[in-house]
Design a protein around this nucleic acid. Structure first.
Lengths: 209, 209
DNA sequence: AAATAACTGTACTGTACCGTACAGTACTTA
DNA sequence: TAAGTACTGTACGGTACAGTACAGTTATTT
């Protein structure tokens, strides 16, 4: 078996894989895990049942694969190289805005809801989700706040606590309201206003006395 | 049919109703809507399938009934009469603590998760949930903040915005982490520390400049 | 062109479970 | 105690769907 064979084989399998993942992503997000049927997914993907089982082992395997992928996409690190020597206000506003724009999309909210719904039944799934998701971002915030505190730009007793408060403030009711479907997604303008206000209040709160 | 008859009949039906609600509550919270079976619930309740259908009309009717009940319980108004002329710090800390203790229970988190999970499939359920739940509490916070602003105790551009930030800060990652099951419920001490810190930061943030 | 790998399509099995029907049993009231 | 009400238990219909078996078809390599 030559290298060429392997590559060709891989690219063919990978194309099928992609088709399944894309189809499953749509169907699961639309109907939820339990109400999504493999028939729906197979039809939409253009593939066959047999191949699905060969690639993912079954419904749950497919589900976990799409959650992992969505997750990597949604929570991939926020680039912040361009913000190096800017004042904390600017940095937090900028990062906060990017964060919210990432999280407040139909796909991200849908993925979150799926994990919440199936969480009790798939424990390690929610753990993996948390580690690369909310856990990672809050750690990143905490790191930056710690740095500010070390430089004396802020007074903090507990950077991790502050980071959790900050992240909560940002997500605030946006996430809940949007997941519940009681409001549409905020416009970029609304996000910006909200973040600026939150950052100002937060930083002033950290500087008082 | 005399009054006595009616009362007696009611109390009998009500006892059955209770048994079903209690059982369903446990089973739904444990397994999620889709994975909970009526068989489980009937067995646990000690009642019969027939009576379940007579009382609730089916699975969804039962589900909505338990969500409504849980909701009324979890989000019943927080009494605050005792806090009348206390300083804002004390009031917010006290109310915030009570709020968190209400929301951070297995039952409340479970109900929340169920509604989030089934939300898209049951639209008006999530709306009703929001109105008496998160919506009501954020409105209450906004009202109080507005009052403080009118008295000049605080400077606020937008009380509703501030209330959403405050509520988000409180729930912060507690709610997410606990719903995902990646941490245990916080101890009363941890809640208190967290709320005090959040309130201090928030109020200082509202007073700066 | 032969051989093999990568699929597709259909059909089937088995099971789980919602909802209904019905016949029977306990409790309540008069 | 008779009449009615409030149930229970079992059994069954119907359906939906995950997973498997297998025979056939198209691409890829040599």
């Amino acid at each position: 078996m030559t290298t060429k064979t392997v590559i060709a084989a891989h690219s063919r399998l990978d194309a099928r894989r992609r088709a399944f993942l894309d189809a499953a992503s749509i169907v699961f997000l639309e109907k939820g895990y339990a109400n999504a049927t493999l028939g729906d997914i197979i039809e939409k993907s253009g593939g066959s049942r047999q191949t699905l089982y060969a690639l993912f082992g079954g419904k749950q395997g497919l589900f976990e694969a799409i959650i992992a992928e969505r997750n990597a996409e949604i929570f991939r690190p926020l680039r912040a190289d361009d913000l190096h020597n800017r004042p904390p206000e600017d940095v937090l506003v900028e990062i906060g805005t990017r964060f919210l724009h990432r999280v407040l999309t139909p796909e991200a909210l849908g993925a979150f809801r799926l994990v919440l719904a199936e969480g009790p039944a798939m424990k390690e799934l929610s753990e993996r989700f948390w580690v690369v998701g909310p856990g990672r971002t809050v750690t990143a915030f905490a790191g930056y706040l710690e740095e500010l505190a070390d430089r004396g730009a802020l007074r903090l007793q507990d950077a991790s606590l502050a980071a959790r408060q900050f992240q909560g403030m940002l997500l605030g009711n946006f996430q809940i309201d949007c997941m519940l479907g009681v409001r549409e997604l905020p416009s970029p303008g609304e996000v910006e206003t909200f973040v600026k206000s939150a950052v100002a209040r937060f930083l002033d709160g950290c500087r008082a006395r």
